[in-house]
Every structure is written in C-alpha cells, then in structure tokens.
C-alpha cells in the first residue's frame, strides 16, 4: 500500500521554491499536495504528484537532489475528530509520526492524509483493522 512522494532538497534562499514549481509546470506535472519542512539553512519540499517518476527525473536533470519514497496515505471521515481518532490509534499502538500533511481530494465526505511514521507496516495494519481506508496510487 501507500503512495509515492517526491522530496527535493532546497536551499533557503530567494527563488528556490519557484524554480522547483516552474520546472514541474514546464514538464506538465500535476501536484496534488505539497509540504515544506524548513530549517534556517535549507528546506525539504515534499510533493505528491500525478507522475512521481517524471517529477523526480525533471528535478534531477536540472541538478536538484530529489528522491522518491512510498508514504502511508489514508482517508478519514471529514468531520470533527476524524483525524484525532486515527492518530490516537497510532499512538496507542506505539507508532511515532515523523511528519503528516493533507492531500487534496475530490471526495466531499473524506479527508486524505499523507504520513511517514517510524513503522509503516504496523501503522497500516493498525489503521486497516480499525476500518480506516488506506489509499494507493490509483487514488491519485
């Protein structure tokens, strides 16, 4: 299970992010979500794209450091407490979350979430057992 996420290293300076989005736009890559983790010197841009391999190739060809990782993605009911319930389950089962962000969806009753945890296998089985829907590439 899981979906492919493209990550790219960017220096914390003017125009870095624009350069990335520009490259992807020219390659006709459609972004479904983006999240930036930043430090004072650099940032990591994480993206869910319609074609992860193409996105990575475009970025690497332009001299960037980019990789692909499969991350967990799941759908929770779009209502108050929907995400809290899922995170509660993960915590009580000893799964630690490295990062988490929202994913755009066309479904109106579901909220899609992307996550990297310290134990992907366990996280996915805990979520599945509780009836939480896991997403794969077909959903993107």
């Amino acid at each position: 299970m899981g979906i492919k996420q493209v990550s790219v290293f960017v220096e914390n300076k003017k125009g870095s992010l624009h350069e990335i989005t520009d490259l992807l736009a020219k390659a006709n890559v459609d972004l479904r979500s983006m999240c930036i983790a930043d430090t004072s010197d650099y940032g990591i841009v994480r993206m869910i794209a319609d074609d992860a391999e193409r996105a990575q190739k475009v970025l690497c060809d332009a001299g960037h450091t980019a990789n692909i990782r499969t991350v967990t993605a799941f759908a929770v009911p779009d209502e108050p407490g929907g995400l809290a319930k899922a995170l509660n389950l993960l915590e009580s089962n000893g799964v630690n979350i490295e990062y988490l962000y929202a994913l755009i969806t066309t479904a109106t009753d579901k909220a899609y979430t992307v996550m990297r945890s310290d134990d992907t296998e366990k996280a996915e089985s805990v979520l599945l057992k509780s009836g939480i829907e896991l997403l794969d590439e077909a959903h993107i």
Binding site: Q5, S7, F9, Y42, I44, R46, C60, T65, A66, R69
Partner: peptide, 15 residues
C-alpha cells in the same frame, strides 16, 4: 554540498 545519497525527506535525519 549534500550528496544525493545522504539526502532524506526527514529533517531529523539530515540534521
């Protein structure tokens, strides 16, 4: 320079 093989999408690992 951060070489590609040292890159990771977690800030913690790079730090």
């Amino acid at each position: 320079e951060l070489p590609p093989e040292q890159f990771d999408d977690s800030v913690k690992n790079i730090a």
